[in-house]
Design a protein around this nucleic acid. Structure first.
Lengths: 225, 225
DNA sequence: CCAAAAGTGTTCGCAGTACACCCATGC
DNA sequence: GCATGGGTGTACTGCGAACACTTTTGG
């Protein structure tokens, strides 16, 4: 019988107001008691990996996840001071609406942290974070997964700011809009953003997943730089 | 104590004469006794994942691996009929010189198979293969990893045929050469391919890893379509 | 001299990039 | 009317794509 324990960790990103957030939990028990860590835990014997991640997210944070994919498996000996733990890290995205968080069983506290102002993290979670951020940035450029970070109906400017924030660079509004719309995977709605903010309200758009999947089958490639 | 067992599997690709090969081993014990499978096995308690893959490759095939990266972790319940086994799959490349294979302890037989003519595979190894092939094809277009499938000194035509074979499409020789050489990561040597084959011998090239790493740091992007 | 593979340059079209002014709204 | 963000078109440039003939070698 193996003494290797199998765990999962989740890096869940959220986006709002030109800021990228990650969900962290404060550890209730040693090791690293009191420190912030990624939500996660051990996989049950009859549980699929993705099921385990979702369960733990539910138990520890109550977050409603919108997009989930496997990130990488971290298995260095010594990454957990207690015993050998290999962790399959997943990478998730939530919509702004789903930012609601409820602390629950395992974790003493849950919170969203601005990715640019992270506290010290337990275990090798800093390394995992870095990997996840790299993946997010890379994937943003060749798959429209950023749309999972916005509400289902969103003004175009939000999308532009999201790219600008996460890729950390200036984006030309006209070129970005032209290019993104040319893919034909966004539906322009007949609604406008509620003008609670200042400025002219923008038209709302929504992601047409059906069209996207159709295009993907034809091998047409999405690409944003 | 967890009853989940942790394993690794290796998908090792080799290339020669416009054919892409994978290393498979014939299983000596049940389940799937006598069937072909990916080389792999259980991870020891104090062993890093990559170490485990390399050890198993050595034990089962004697292959000298040239490039190795983590592919994906396959953890569906029921993928092994005996008990719960989660397997971290790795993806490797060898040079033609290293095609020598020696069967050893665990495996009854080892052989290279043309990727287009695979036998039935044990477990979910067909799925793993498919994932690996997808990764290889994708990665070829944005990283020069194909060079790990050629000898250190190679005629340019070999590189072109490699891309053409693996991406399964025609490639314009002039455009491909122009584009690839423009990156400046290949050194043109003063040697020529031995003219054992027919036709005019080509100049030999070698990969300048130092230049490549330097360029990568500057954010210059490799891309071949 | 024939077969086979290597080597090489130009033209065209499109897509990326740079760039600035007017419009709608809230206060 | 002022501040704030939304919405739009054009010109330039560089890169990808298409395309064919000559050279070197072995037999």
């Amino acid at each position: 019988m193996s003494k290797i324990k199998l765990a999962t960790d989740a890096i869940v990103f959220g986006y709002q107001h030109s800021q990228l957030f990650v969900a962290l939990v404060k550890r209730k028990y040693p090791p690293f008691k009191g420190q912030w860590a990624l939500p996660g835990g051990f996989v049950l014997e009859n549980e699929n990996l993705e099921t385990a991640v979702k369960r733990e997210l539910r138990e520890e944070t109550g977050i409603h996840i919108n997009y989930l994919e496997q990130l990488y498996t971290f298995g260095e000996t010594g990454r957990d001071p207690r015993r050998r733990v290999v962790s399959v890290a997943y990478f998730g995205l939530v919509r702004p609406k789903d930012f609601k968080i409820k602390a629950a069983t395992d974790a003493a506290e849950v919170a969203w942290f601005d990715v640019k102002k992270l506290p010290p993290l337990a275990f090798d979670h800093k390394k995992i974070m870095k990997t996840a951020l790299g993946r997010l940035r890379a994937k943003l450029t060749y798959q429209p997964i950023g749309l999972n970070l916005l509400d289902k109906k969103f003004p175009f400017g939000d999308l532009e700011r999201l790219y600008s924030t996460i890729l950390d660079k200036k984006i030309d509004r006209r070129n970005f809009r032209k290019k993104f719309l040319k893919f034909g995977i966004l539906d322009e709605l007949d609604e406008y953003a509620s003008a609670i903010d200042k400025g002219r309200p923008g038209k709302l758009f929504s992601f047409d997943k059906r069209k996207y999947n159709a295009l993907r089958k034809e091998g047409i490639l999405f690409e944003i730089r």
